[in-house]
Simulated scan of single mutants.
Amino acid sequence: MFANLINEKNQTYKNVKVGFSWTEMFFGFWTPVFRGDFKWACFLVIAEIIFGSFTWGGGALLVTFIFAFFYNRLYVKDMVKQGYKPADKTSLNILNSYHYL
């Protein structure tokens, strides 16, 4: 499911995914890098290095799997902090139903 966000200050639109992040699960820290979310990309790189080094890489896979449940919520909350708001009533209802707002 997707929701539309708008930043009224500079009139930019974002179409954001709501729910489980399949891209995060398959691509790990590259998902926040391509979205320009470098705070969470750095967090993931450090967590994957720490947990992956003790488990021959298995811990890094576990980190990306667990983080896939939370990443879209964190990304939307960061966007709201930057001034983005739901662009329409449907997006508002979607974000409220998933408890993103």
Rank of each mutant, 00 (worst) to 15 (best):
F65D: 07
F65A: 05
V33W: 04
G59A: 10
N7V: 02
P86T: 08
F65I: 02
G58S: 08
G57K: 04
W56H: 10
I49N: 03
L62Y: 01
S91P: 12
I50K: 03
F70H: 09
G52Q: 05
A68K: 05
N4D: 12
I66M: 10
N4W: 15
S21M: 05
F26H: 07
Q11G: 00
K81C: 06
F2M: 11
N96K: 14
N72L: 09
F69T: 01
I50F: 02
V63Q: 10
D37L: 06
D78L: 04
A87M: 04
F54A: 15
I66R: 08
L61W: 14
K89I: 00
T31I: 09
V33D: 01
F29S: 01
A68S: 15
W40Y: 12
T23Y: 03
M25A: 15
I49P: 04
G59C: 11
T31Y: 07
V45N: 06
V76F: 07
W22Q: 06
E24A: 14
T23R: 04
Y98R: 05
F38T: 04
N7E: 03
Y13E: 07
K14N: 11
M79H: 09
T31L: 09
M1Y: 06
F69R: 03
M79A: 13
I49V: 13
Y13W: 00
F38E: 01
D37W: 10
G19L: 03
N10C: 01
E8D: 00
G83R: 09
K17E: 12
W30R: 12
G83V: 11
K77A: 09
F2V: 04
K14M: 14
L92R: 12
A68Q: 05
E48I: 02
K81V: 04
W40F: 11
G83Y: 15
L95P: 05
V45L: 12
A41S: 10
Q82K: 14
V33H: 08
V63N: 10
N96T: 11
G83I: 07
